[in-house]
Every structure is written in C-alpha cells, then in structure tokens.
Lab assay of single mutants.
Amino acid sequence: TGEEYIAVGDFTAQQVGDLTFKKGEILLVIEKKPDGWWIAKDAKGNEGLVPRTYLEPYS
C-alpha cells in the first residue's frame, strides 16, 4: 500500500530507474526517501523514482 499523489507537472526520466509521468497523473508513493526522490508506481504498474517537488497529495 501507499499514498496517492497527483503530478503537478510533466517529468521525463533523466536516468535508468526514474519514472516518466504527465501532469494530472495519479501516482502511488511507496517509499519517501530523504533525498527528495520518492519511489512511486503509476496506473500501469510501472515503478520508479520521482521528484517529490512534482507531486501533491491527492484526496
């Protein structure tokens, strides 16, 4: 389980392990790392690192 967040901007993977997403996408945050990069999963089940500055809590 995780917390749902909504993307407030588009993000394109910079390196292997990053997750590309579009503004408005709902992501499930699995782990919040202290460096500001969180592990998240998208609706298709893809998992990767995302920058927390692009996310806001979804309710």
Rank of each mutant, 00 (worst) to 15 (best):
T1Q: 14
T1I: 10
T1S: 13
T1L: 12
G2P: 15
G2T: 10
G2Q: 10
G2E: 10
G2V: 11
E3W: 13
E3C: 08
E3V: 10
E3Q: 12
E4Y: 15
E4K: 15
E4I: 13
E4T: 14
E4A: 15
Y5I: 01
Y5K: 01
Y5L: 02
Y5M: 05
I6P: 01
I6A: 04
I6R: 09
I6L: 08
I6W: 06
I6G: 02
I6S: 03
I6H: 04
A7H: 00
A7K: 00
A7C: 08
A7S: 09
A7E: 00
A7L: 02
A7T: 10
A7G: 05
A7Y: 02
V8A: 07
V8T: 15
V8S: 07
V8P: 01
V8E: 03
G9A: 15
G9N: 14
G9T: 14
G9K: 15
G9S: 14
G9C: 11
D10Q: 04
F11W: 12
F11M: 04
F11K: 03
F11G: 02
F11I: 04
F11L: 04
F11N: 03
F11D: 01
F11S: 03
T12W: 13
T12G: 06
T12K: 09
T12A: 08
T12R: 08
T12Q: 13
A13R: 07
A13C: 05
A13M: 06
A13H: 04
Q14W: 08
Q14K: 14
Q14S: 11
Q14H: 10
Q14V: 13
Q14L: 11
Q15S: 13
Q15Y: 10
Q15L: 11
Q15R: 14
V16P: 14
V16A: 12
V16S: 14
V16H: 14
G17H: 07
G17A: 06
G17F: 05
G17D: 06
G17V: 04
G17N: 06
G17T: 09
D18Q: 15
D18K: 13
D18L: 15
D18A: 14
D18F: 15
L19I: 06
L19H: 02
L19T: 01
T20E: 10
T20D: 08
T20R: 04
T20N: 09
T20A: 10
T20G: 13
F21C: 05
F21E: 00
F21V: 11
F21R: 00
F21W: 02
F21S: 01
F21A: 03
K22M: 09
K22I: 07
K23V: 08
K23L: 08
K23N: 06
K23P: 02
G24A: 04
G24N: 07
G24T: 03
G24D: 06
G24R: 03
G24I: 01
G24W: 06
E25K: 02
E25W: 09
E25V: 05
I26P: 03
I26A: 03
I26D: 01
I26S: 03
I26E: 02
I26V: 10
L27H: 01
L27P: 00
L27M: 06
L27S: 00
L28I: 12
L28T: 13
L28A: 05
V29F: 02
V29R: 01
V29W: 00
V29L: 05
I30G: 03
I30W: 04
I30L: 14
I30R: 05
E31S: 12
E31N: 10
E31A: 11
E31L: 11
E31M: 11
E31H: 10
E31R: 06
E31G: 08
E31W: 08
K32G: 02
K32D: 03
K32F: 09
K32S: 04
K32R: 08
K33D: 07
K33L: 12
K33W: 09
K33F: 11
P34S: 13
P34N: 14
P34I: 11
P34H: 13
P34M: 11
D35C: 06
D35P: 02
G36V: 04
G36A: 05
G36N: 07
G36P: 04
G36K: 04
G36R: 03
G36I: 05
G36W: 04
W37H: 07
W37K: 10
W37P: 03
W38L: 03
W38D: 02
W38V: 04
W38Y: 06
W38F: 06
I39Y: 12
I39L: 13
I39K: 10
I39D: 03
I39R: 13
I39N: 06
A40W: 01
A40I: 03
A40N: 00
A40E: 00
A40Y: 01
K41D: 02
K41Y: 08
K41T: 07
K41R: 15
K41S: 08
K41V: 14
D42S: 07
D42G: 03
D42H: 03
D42T: 06
A43Q: 13
A43P: 09
A43E: 10
K44A: 14
K44C: 10
K44S: 13
K44P: 03
G45P: 00
G45D: 06
G45M: 07
G45Q: 06
G45S: 05
G45W: 04
N46S: 08
N46V: 09
N46E: 12
N46K: 09
N46F: 09
N46M: 11
E47K: 09
E47L: 15
E47Q: 12
G48E: 00
G48D: 00
G48Q: 01
G48W: 02
G48F: 03
G48H: 02
G48M: 02
L49C: 09
L49P: 05
V50L: 03
V50R: 00
V50N: 00
V50W: 00
V50K: 00
P51G: 05
P51W: 12
P51L: 13
P51Q: 09
R52T: 08
R52F: 12
T53I: 13
T53N: 11
T53H: 14
Y54L: 15
Y54C: 10
Y54Q: 10
L55G: 00
L55F: 04
E56S: 10
E56P: 01
P57S: 07
P57K: 11
P57F: 09
P57C: 06
P57T: 07
P57M: 07
Y58G: 06
Y58F: 13
Y58S: 08
Y58C: 09
S59P: 09
S59E: 12
S59G: 14
S59F: 12
S59W: 12
S59V: 13
